[in-house]
Amino acid sequence: MFSKGNSSNSDSFDTIIGINSKIEGNIETEGTIRVDGKVFGDLKINGDVYVGKDAAILGNIYANNVFISGKVEGNIESKGILKVHSSGKLYGDIAVYSLVTEEGSLFEGKCKMMAVNQPEDVPSVSNTKKSKNNNKTSAAE
């Protein structure tokens, strides 16, 4: 059930959906979930989501971090990292802070990278352009 490439152990999951299980409906939980079976519905998880190699999810996923080794057909919103392992297949749009795809993985959809707040001492692009224009104006005078 747990692949050698996945560093998680069974103690780290609050909910496990076994390989022979089929769930129809939305799932919400505060902790981390591992799916090895089939889920037809949305997952709203305040922890992390692990999708096993033989798992299939037909629905949207909202979570902190998402690790896909199986198949997901749906949109994903991750507050942290989305990692698609080499055996993973993802069909859907994503909105994430960080995206990692291994060689051999499949991703079909649109990707929106959410910005992390910039430090205050780093000028934004619009401020940089403005200061260059001001320099050109000053040089012309």
Rank of each mutant, 00 (worst) to 15 (best):
2 F>H: 15
3 S>Y: 12
6 N>W: 12
9 N>D: 14
9 N>I: 09
10 S>F: 14
10 S>D: 10
11 D>V: 07
12 S>V: 11
13 F>C: 11
15 T>A: 09
18 G>W: 11
18 G>Q: 10
19 I>F: 04
23 I>M: 09
23 I>D: 04
25 G>D: 04
26 N>W: 11
27 I>N: 05
27 I>T: 07
28 E>P: 03
30 E>R: 11
32 T>D: 13
33 I>K: 04
33 I>H: 02
34 R>V: 04
37 G>N: 05
37 G>V: 04
38 K>I: 14
41 G>W: 09
43 L>D: 02
43 L>Q: 03
43 L>K: 07
44 K>W: 06
44 K>Y: 12
45 I>M: 08
45 I>Y: 05
45 I>D: 05
47 G>F: 04
47 G>E: 03
48 D>P: 08
48 D>G: 03
49 V>R: 02
49 V>Q: 04
49 V>C: 01
50 Y>W: 08
50 Y>R: 09
51 V>H: 01
51 V>L: 05
53 K>M: 07
55 A>K: 00
57 I>E: 03
57 I>G: 01
59 G>L: 05
59 G>N: 04
59 G>M: 05
60 N>F: 02
61 I>Q: 03
61 I>M: 01
61 I>W: 02
63 A>K: 09
63 A>N: 10
63 A>F: 01
64 N>M: 11
65 N>R: 15
65 N>S: 15
65 N>Q: 13
68 I>V: 12
69 S>P: 06
69 S>L: 07
69 S>E: 09
70 G>C: 03
71 K>Y: 05
73 E>R: 10
73 E>P: 06
77 E>S: 14
77 E>C: 10
79 K>A: 14
79 K>V: 04
82 L>E: 11
84 V>P: 03
84 V>W: 01
87 S>G: 01
89 K>V: 11
90 L>P: 03
90 L>R: 05
91 Y>S: 08
91 Y>W: 06
92 G>M: 10
94 I>V: 13
96 V>A: 01
98 S>L: 11
98 S>F: 00
100 V>L: 01
100 V>R: 01
102 E>D: 09
102 E>M: 01
102 E>K: 01
103 E>G: 09
107 F>W: 06
108 E>D: 09
109 G>W: 06
110 K>M: 13
112 K>G: 06
113 M>K: 11
116 V>S: 11
116 V>K: 13
118 Q>V: 10
120 E>A: 15
124 S>Y: 08
125 V>F: 11
125 V>Q: 07
126 S>T: 12
127 N>A: 06
127 N>W: 10
128 T>N: 07
129 K>S: 10
132 K>C: 00
135 N>S: 09
141 E>N: 15
